[in-house]
């Protein structure tokens, strides 16, 4: 090999361009992503007595709380759907989105000690979070199916599954993309403006109430209804309930809107993340 200028394999420069994204490199580190997923999964439940049972307990508890507060006390309609199933389905899907969002949103701060010592494509960390939460979602979906089966058999709950259920993977993928995109966008911004991380906790909570999790979209009217349909997660939840319970309508327009939103937010997120990636150590 001659030492001509073009034979350099890598050039370290001060500033990265906005579009200087190395997808190939992330692919090369795919083993690391898998190992991160494994680590997250093994380490979270290793010290607990109930272990992975918490994956079941968490959504069930929330469901019961919602059942008492919103169904028994506030008497909010669930459009004839068994309230337990109604809440559990909403919570299961919502939790996936909010976990992806909140856990990827502190990527830089939480991993500062590793990031400060060794280089690997930083995007591997949020990607691994989205994947490990996907496994968690899978387990919780199984729980949902079991509870649904129980409710149908013993409590005469009615479900109405139709062919649109085949779109479930797409719905989940959209939530993953949206959660990841928003999370990494936030993580990039919080390296400089820490206050944002405090806002995030409130923001996610607020967003949940602005999503038809504890009430059906049809429960709202007028301006509020309009506002809620701007929420890109609304069509995902609504479409799932249509395909499983047969309530509401299948909203193709909403789904296209969600798709465009998800892809755009992921793109913007990656741009910001990439921009911050190589100098955040100085500000963290």
């Amino acid at each position: 090999m001659k030492s001509s200028d073009d034979s350099w394999t890598e050039i370290i420069k001060p500033k990265r361009g906005w579009l200087d994204i190395n997808i190939q490199e992330i692919w090369r580190y795919r083993d690391l992503i898998i190992l991160f997923v494994r680590r997250d999964f093994v380490s979270i439940y290793k010290q607990t007595i109930l272990g992975p049972l918490w994956l079941f307990i968490q959504p069930l508890f929330t469901t019961f709380i919602f059942y008492f507060v919103f169904n028994q006390i506030a008497k909010i309609s669930t459009e004839g759907v068994d309230p337990i199933l109604f809440y559990l389905s909403g919570i299961t899907l919502w939790n996936y989105f909010s976990d992806c969002f909140s856990k990827t949103s502190n990527t830089f701060v939480a991993n500062a000690s590793i990031f400060g010592k060794v280089y690997f494509p930083r995007l591997t960390t949020p990607i691994s979070i989205v994947i490990s939460n996907l496994i968690k979602l899978g387990i919780q979906v199984v729980l949902f199916v079991i509870i649904a089966f129980y409710q149908v058999t013993f409590n005469h709950a009615s479900i109405n599954i139709n062919s649109t259920i085949l779109l479930l993977p797409v719905l989940i993928l959209l939530m993953a993309i949206m959660g990841l995109g928003m999370g990494i966008l936030f993580s990039a911004l919080t390296t400089k403006y820490r206050d944002l991380s405090f806002l995030l906790t409130f923001g996610i909570q607020l967003l949940m109430y602005a999503t038809p999790i504890i009430y059906p979209l049809s429960f709202t009217t007028g301006k509020l209804h309009q506002l809620l349909s701007y929420n890109p997660i609304t069509p995902i939840i609504e479409n799932f309930r249509y395909s499983f319970f047969g309530i509401g309508t299948f909203d193709v327009g909403g789904l296209i809107y969600s798709t465009i939103f998800s892809i755009s937010v992921l793109f913007i997120g990656i741009l910001f993340f990439n921009k911050v990636e190589n100098k955040f150590m100085d500000t963290v």
């Binding site: 350099w8 394999t9 001060p14 010592k117 060794v118 190589n278």
Partner: peptide, 28 residues
């Protein structure tokens, strides 16, 4: 740190030929 790509330089460049690994710490 700049050579290991942990942080970026403010000005200037580093050109590298070949795979680089850095041990700033063991057991990261």
């Amino acid at each position: 740190k700049i050579l290991s790509k942990v942080t970026a330089p403010t000005k200037g460049t580093i050109k590298i030929r070949g795979r680089i690994a850095s041990l700033l710490e063991v057991g990261t």
